[in-house]
Each structure stands twice: as C-alpha cells, then as structure tokens.
Amino acid sequence: MLSRADTPRLPLILGFAAFLIAVFLLVPFLISVTGRWNFYFTLTSVALLSVASAGVWLTFYIGRINIGQGAFALIGAYVSAILVTKAGVSFWVSLPAAGLFAGLVAVVIGLPILRLRGVYFAMITLVLTEVVRLSALALPITNGAKGIVSIPLPGELSLFGITIIPDFSTIENPKLAFYYTACVLMVVCFASMYRIVHSRLGQLCRSMQQNEELASSVGVNIAYLRVIVFAISSFFGGLGGAMFGAIAQSVYPSSFVVKDSIDFMLNCFLGGLGYVFGPMLGTLVLYFGWDLLFELGKYQLLVYAGTLILLILVLPNGLLSIRFGRIRGLWK
C-alpha cells in the first residue's frame, strides 16, 4: 500500500506541477480558443463533486462504505445559503462554516452509527441521505419544497483593506471565477487528503481498514479515530455542497438526493479505492460519460448503467488499477 518511505519525491512534484498547469492554464486556454464556455460549468461541477467524493473515499479508507455524502452536501449547501441570505454573512465566511457544521453533524451522528460496519453502515448512511432531504422539506428555516432561491453571488473578500478575491457580481466572467475557486478548493482538498493518507493518521486508518479489533488491541483509539475521519469526510461534503449552492444560486431539498450519494460512492469505486486521486478521475469519467450520453435521449440511463456494469466486470478494482498496475513500485 501507500507508504512514505518508498515514494520518490521528484515524479510526484513533477506530476503535481503538470496537473496544476493543466487545470489553471491549459483548460482556460483551450476553452477560450474553442469558445466552448459551457465547459466551465461542467468542469466546475466535476471539481466540486470530486471534493465531496474525496470525503467518501476517506471513509472507505477506514473500511466504511459511506452512502451518506449527499446528506452532508445538502447540509452544507443549506448552512451556507441560510447564512448568506438570512444572516447576511459573507460567502467566504459561510463556506468554512458550512463545512464545519457538516463536520459537527457528522460527529453527533457518527458517534452512534460508526459502531456499525459493512453493509449496516452503508444502509444507515443511505437512509440518512433520505432523512436529511425530508428534514429540509419539513423544517421552517429551510423554506420547505420552495427552497432558498436567488442567493447573491459571492462578495468581495479583503484582508486589511487588500482585496484578495473581488466581488463576483462585478467580474466580467463569473463562470471563470467559479472555475478557479472550485479548482483551488479541489487542489487544496486533494493535497490535504494526500497529506492525511501519508501521515500517522493515514497509517492508523489503514490499520483500521484491515482489522479494527487488532488495531484496537495494539492501542489505536479506533472510536476516536473513526469519528475524526468521518468528520473530515463530511467537512469535504459540506464544502462541496456549499460551493455548489453558490454556483446554482439556489438550494432545494432535491439538490442532493440518494442518487447523488450513490454517485459519490460510485466515483470512488470507479477511480479505485486504493488511490488518493481515484475519486477525482472517477468523478471526471462518470460526469463526462453521463453528459456525452445525453444525445441518446431516453436510452441515456440504459447505456450509462450498462457501461458501468461492463466496467466493473472488466476492472473490478477501479480505473487507476490499469494505469498504475505496471509501474506499481513507483506509485503504490
């Protein structure tokens, strides 16, 4: 598995630099050349969904199947929306607040449900998604089925009088601004994921993934650890959801439903559960695959599901398992 000692530094740094250049320079350049501006929205969505998927991946890392990320994304979206519209807080404050709130909810809910394992945990997180949707419908603060609409665009962020991020409504091209914001979020998220996985915490997580009782018997505080990891995972979910709400400028109870929760999980599976960057690739492939099949009309879902099933039959361990299978010593 992943270990710090045998990971060469140079290829990693080169790969990271290439990725940054591709995301921040190459993609905007290509889009401005070809003039396909709608691609920004697609890529922004992919970036945000991969942030939420990264959270799911982290819970997989401690050996739990999490199908509840839609719930935390919805919570994040609502917290941000409510803070911005009702309390008049700046979006840039509400974004971390949404993540933290989702993390807090995860701690409260996680304490009892993280005792469950395997399929039980998968089932209860799935139910959680549905329950958060129902709560959003029932609670007065979320405005029921009408949702929260016309959320203002993110405002200016300044520190000591210096503008760091300009007001989005004054920017000529808010799509590009959202794209950059989402990509920064994604890069930071995956960098911290990489850091977590290669830290002591990551080692402890791997020990939990293999055998919780054994880990516990050699002194790993599994009850504490799994709640922490679940909270981090939900923090990512909340961030992704809040940012999504800001882009759509609206939040409905149906913004994140069971299907989204399952999609987050599928992204991780498809990318490969053994690789930190699996969720990113999985999200990209699934999202674009879905969009490309749009031409097929009512057979879209049929072809999509069929391809998915074929993929899992051919590559049961994820997409990255082919790419890095041969140069295993280098990456794994």
């Binding site: 998968a122 999980m265 559960l273 879209q300 599901a305 998915l308 099933i309 039959l313 049961p316």
Partner: peptide
C-alpha cells in the same frame, strides 16, 4: 463473476447500484 474476481467485496455494491440504474428508465 464479480464476487469471484474482485479484490474487495464492496465492488458488488457498485454492481448493485449499476443494476439499479439499469432497471429504471423513464
């Protein structure tokens, strides 16, 4: 086949979800 070949038993969940999508259109 998937249960026999997959390294992780969770892969069956991906399959189950895929089938769930497959069986519903419209």
């Amino acid at each position: 086949p998937v249960i026999r070949r997959s390294a992780r038993e969770e892969s069956t969940m991906l399959l189950a979800a895929g089938i769930a999508f497959l069986l519903v259109f419209g």
